[in-house]
Design a protein around this nucleic acid. Structure first.
Lengths: 203, 203
DNA sequence: GTCTATACATCGATAGAC
DNA sequence: GTCTATCGATGTATAGAC
């Protein structure tokens, strides 16, 4: 296997373990096994656990931020835009639940690389938030939606989307519900769109 | 100091460290120091790290669930009820950000005690969710609010409340904002109430 | 019950043969 | 570049004096 391929294999295996267990809970031995090499090989390629962690995270954060663009619909009509965004974004979240929960935890836990990687991704223009915010402003000026702070509305939107998924194991205990992943996804798409569109549209 | 008092002191010190660092990242030495004793004393009182962790969590989860009742307002009028609930609940969250983020992380990480403690608290009736859900149903029957699934609406409400706080370090990077805690709290109270009330009220 | 000293286990990292 | 063997550091846990 070529060197680049091995490094790629290690990074993917490491990402899986790190996302599940966190930096503190992850074991180099487990990563090595998942990558199909031994622990000495792991150190040969990445020198230390910290360097491996940093490499993995820089790559993942950037890729994750970039992929946000794919959730942004083309529609000019704000209602259609919002509905499509919620559907796309929930599908997107559904694929990255582990990563999002992990980032929230590791950032507060104090891993310096996380903030650094996010800052780089934001400064590098990997996260096109402005398009969403502009859509709101345009709809406000057109009198389609109420005048609200666009950033606050967007925070509310992503909160309603992300939280039920990253906290799902907790919610299942608290609300004592039990539905399949697909059913839950479908219900959330409907609920969030209805509440948010009614919540922001002009009567 | 009486035995009960020392145990209490240790539990509080341990909770602080566990919530910040997680089970894997917490160190017995650090907990001992924070409790003002040495590591041998820690083991004398709680035998092992796992037992200490379990004791702390059972206590905290139950207390946290119980305190939810304090966020439930008395108001009969649903609009007033919702507005007050959001304000109370955000104040409540603001005091327990570390704990909530920690629970979400540890539950997925696989700490068996967490699910167990939650189940006990729920089964013990420590979490009076029904009052909130009943309020929605009554308002629906009275024609005050639209017909929605009460559980889904409640999930949306708590999501909009909790997420911005547990993910705040991330949001600050992503949205590049920087306001004081109090200012952020005030803005969220206003935003969530406006969007959710408009989102559910009958036109 | 509380201390010091230390045993014991685990993990990250490296040396050195191949 | 990859392996086995092992070092050294760190962290949990305990023995035993007081």
């Amino acid at each position: 296997m070529a060197k680049k391929n091995i490094e790629e294999t290690i990074i993917n295996a490491a990402a899986k373990i790190f996302l599940e267990k966190g930096m503190d809970g992850a074991r180099m031995q487990e990563i090595a096994k998942a990558a199909g090499i031994n622990q000495a090989g792991l150190h040969y390629y990445f020198r230390s656990k910290e360097r491996l962690f940093n490499t993995v995270m820089k790559k993942r954060v950037r890729a994750f931020f970039r992929s946000f663009a794919e959730t942004l619909p083309q529609a000019d009509d704000f209602e259609t835009f919002l509905k499509s965004f919620i559907e796309n974004y929930l599908d997107h979240i559904n694929k990255h639940v582990l990563f999002m929960r992990f980032v929230i935890w590791e950032v507060q836990r104090g891993a310096p690389i996380m903030s650094e990687a996010m800052k780089e991704a934001v400064d590098g223009g990997d996260l096109p938030l402005n398009m969403f915010l502009e859509k709101i402003k345009i709809a406000q000026e057109a009198g389609i939606v109420r005048v609200v702070d666009p950033t606050q509305f967007m925070i509310t939107t992503v909160s309603a989307c992300i939280f039920p998924f990253i906290a799902r194991p907790v919610l299942e205990n608290v609300f004592q519900f039990s539905v399949t992943g697909n059913e839950f996804l479908r219900m959330r798409k409907e609920e969030i769109y209805r509440v948010l569109w009614n919540g922001i549209k002009k009567q």
